[in-house]
Amino acid sequence: MLYCFKSKAGADVIMMADSADAVLRLMGREPAPKGILETADLPGLVQALEAGVAEDEAQFQRAVDAAKAAGEHPPRRQGVSLRQRAWPLRDLMQRSHREGADVVWGV
């Protein structure tokens, strides 16, 4: 399944379901086939998303530091990072807030 996040403020952001589900959960939203991120809620949702991405990066950095301390090869990120997946939606949400537009999907 694909999620297509839409807003009058910018281009659509398309994500695979597993990535979109993770991003929605970071924002405190339950994944659903249809939904809306209302303009008034966008600043708090962006903040929650940024905090989740920062925690993901900190957790990876702790794993790298622990491996180095143990004299092992540090782990490498596999695939696309959470930041890379989430940032297009974050940008759309910020643009939408500035322009007073909601972000919707599944409609």
Rank of each mutant, 00 (worst) to 15 (best):
L49G: 06
V64G: 04
S81D: 09
E57I: 02
H73P: 04
L49W: 11
A32M: 08
D102Q: 12
A66E: 12
V23N: 08
Y3V: 05
R98P: 01
E38D: 11
L42P: 04
G71R: 14
Y3M: 07
L82G: 05
R77T: 14
W105T: 13
L24V: 07
A54Q: 14
P43N: 03
K34Q: 15
A66P: 02
E99P: 02
Y3L: 05
G79K: 13
V13H: 08
Q47F: 03
M1N: 07
K34A: 13
P75R: 07
S96Q: 02
R98A: 09
E57C: 03
C4R: 15
P75A: 05
G106A: 02
L37K: 01
Q61L: 14
Q94G: 09
F60D: 11
R62C: 04
I36L: 15
E72P: 02
A70I: 00
G28V: 03
G106Q: 11
M1G: 10
V80R: 13
A9N: 01
H97F: 15
L89Y: 06
A51N: 14
V104A: 08
S81W: 15
E55V: 05
K34L: 11
R95W: 02
L82Y: 12
S19M: 04
R98W: 09
R77K: 15
L89H: 08
S96I: 03
Y3R: 10
D56W: 11
R85M: 12
W87R: 08
P74W: 01
L24T: 08
A54V: 04
R76H: 14
G106F: 11
A32F: 07
E38S: 13
Q94F: 00
G44M: 02
G35S: 12
V13W: 08
L89F: 05
L49M: 15
D18K: 11
D102W: 13
R98G: 02
G10K: 07
T39R: 09
A48P: 03
G106K: 14
Q84T: 15
A63F: 09
E99S: 10
G100S: 06
S7H: 05
D21T: 09
A101C: 07
I36C: 15
P75Q: 06
M93R: 06
V46K: 07
Q59D: 10
G44Q: 05
Q61V: 10
A101Y: 02
D56P: 06
A63R: 15
Y3Q: 00
Y3E: 03
D41S: 15
E72C: 00
R29Q: 10
G79P: 13
L92H: 07
A63E: 15
K68S: 08
C4Y: 08
P33A: 03
V53Q: 01
M27R: 01
V53W: 06
P75V: 00
M16P: 00
K6M: 05
G52R: 00
Q59F: 06
D21S: 14
E30R: 14
V80C: 02
V53A: 03
Q61F: 11
V13P: 02
A67V: 07
L92A: 01
A20R: 05
S7A: 03
L82D: 04
L37T: 06
I36D: 14
M27F: 00
S7Y: 03
A69Q: 09
P33E: 05
A70W: 06
R98E: 12
R62Q: 14
S96Y: 07
V23C: 08
L42G: 01
G79R: 13
W105V: 12
P31E: 00
F5N: 05
A11F: 00
L49I: 10
L49T: 10
A32G: 13
A20I: 03
